[in-house]
């Protein structure tokens, strides 16, 4: 039974790391900070949650703590991204020329 859970956990863990790898690729390829934050936030959230789930399958005793860590990630990750994005915008970070519209700059002024 535990051997099967180990295999399943391993697979889930690997799928989590695949998302983290794609996130890293996104950070590298995206043209400006806002798109980079997008790539970073989503993939680290799902990637970390899958990694935690994989560990939970391998070590069922830890699952409650892992669940709480997952919840903590789920609530802090988007918040920190939002604050970073806002700070970047206020600080006049460069936006890629592909950007089609910026309502925030229209309402609040564009420092860049």
């Amino acid at each position: 039974m535990q051997a099967m859970l180990d295999i399943l956990g391993g697979l889930v863990l690997v799928s989590g790391t695949v998302f983290l790898l794609l996130g890293a690729l996104g950070l590298n390829r995206m043209p400006d900070i806002f798109n980079r934050i997008q790539a970073g936030t989503k993939t680290t959230t799902l990637g970390t949650m899958l990694t935690l789930a994989g560990i939970g399958l391998m070590q069922p005793d830890w699952s409650m703590k892992l669940l709480l860590i997952g919840l903590f990630m789920l609530f802090t990750n988007p918040l920190s991204s939002q604050v970073l994005a806002r700070a970047a915008h206020r600080g006049g970070a460069r936006k890629t020329p592909e950007t089609e519209v910026d309502r925030y700059a229209e309402d609040h002024g564009d420092p860049s």
Partner: peptide, 12 residues
């Protein structure tokens, strides 16, 4: 991310 020409059209 995996597509070679990075198909994005961002906006706020």
């Amino acid at each position: 991310v995996l597509e070679p020409d990075l198909p994005i059209n961002p906006g706020i």
